[in-house]
């Protein structure tokens, strides 16, 4: 499930409107959006994932949460994150992010020593905020388009570019080449513990997705695409690239807590707030979108 919360990211292909009446709108981020030509296949894989997750991953993650104190789980996450520092550093450098590369080195030095092998994270309180990088992001910075969306059971949402990037990240990881007794066992243990820790970290987010209802496959994909784009930009979005909003001038709508659902469905409250004025005047200021492109 890597990257789902880190979640929460945008592809290259412009999906053509599927109906004739569809029109480009200011702020339509979908202009750069979902490239999911293998949706049918992906939905099949998503179903497999959901079954395995429900039967194994989620129960194990919930058990891990129940059986361990928060401090312990934080220590495990810190330790695993510290082990990723060489990969993050390599990608910082490949992206030309000098300051962030420095932060990664500083964090690794501080957390490995003062933080007792990375179990604690004193670097953050010293002003060195943690960040993630991977080779998928590096490829994006180099201008490689995301390619088709892919849902991989057990690993979660990705794209052709980002999936290939994960393979390179394995090659960039010094632990891949470590040669000592039980090295394979250590590598396998890290993978399993990482999976459990990441699924535990996503419990609340996935519960939230499921609670909202709707098409869970689309929810995962949307969240992944938007969050991935944000990660590629390292949180430094040029505000001028944000979407425009229509210039409208109208009063708030009358409050309808259930959106017009049947009164029997929920207990309507008698003294609902009434906002004044129902006049509507949508100024048709349909400007060209400033949506960001991948």
């Amino acid at each position: 499930m890597r990257g789902l919360v880190s979640i929460m990211v945008l592809a290259a292909c412009l999906a053509a409107p599927t109906i004739a009446s569809a029109q480009e709108a200011p702020g339509d981020v979908s202009a750069a959006a979902s490239s999911d030509p293998w949706e049918g296949f992906n939905r099949g894989l998503f179903s497999v994932h959901q079954a395995v997750d429900g039967a194994v991953l989620e129960p194990v993650a919930r058990g891990y949460r129940v059986a361990t104190p928060r401090l312990f789980r934080a220590g495990v996450s810190n330790f695993l994150r510290n082990l990723k520092s060489p990969v993050i550093f390599a990608n910082d450098v490949l992206q030309g992010e000098v300051n962030r590369a420095g932060a990664t080195v500083g964090r690794f030095a501080i957390n490995t020593t003062l933080g007792v092998a990375g179990i604690f994270d004193p670097a953050t309180s010293m002003g060195l905020e943690r960040h993630d990088e991977d080779f998928g992001q590096t490829l994006a910075v180099w201008g490689v388009p995301s390619g088709p969306y892919i849902f991989v059971p057990l690993f979660g949402p990705t794209t052709l570019r980002d999936g290939a990037g994960q393979i390179v990240d394995v090659a960039l990881d010094p632990l891949t080449y470590a040669d000592f007794d039980d090295a394979d066992t250590v590598r396998a243990a890290r993978g399993i513990i990482s999976g459990i820790a990441q699924r535990e970290a996503l419990i609340d987010q996935i519960d939230s997705f499921e609670a909202q209802g709707g098409d869970l496959y689309v929810t995962y994909r949307s969240a992944y695409e938007v969050s991935r784009e944000a990660a590629i930009q390292n949180g430094r979005v040029d505000v001028q690239d944000l979407p425009d909003f229509d210039d409208i001038d109208e009063a708030p709508v009358t409050n309808t807590p259930n959106g017009g659902a049947s009164a029997e469905a929920i207990q309507q409250q008698p003294d609902q707030i009434q906002e004044a004025g129902n006049s509507v005047a949508l100024k048709e200021a349909i400007a060209l979108p400033k949506s960001k492109q991948d």
């Binding site: 929460m8 960040h131 938007v226 969050s227 944000a230 990660a231 930009q233 949180g235 979005v237 944000l242």
Partner: peptide, 8 residues
Amino acid sequence: AVGRDGVW
């Protein structure tokens, strides 16, 4: 937008 990277 939430999170370090700012997810809208």
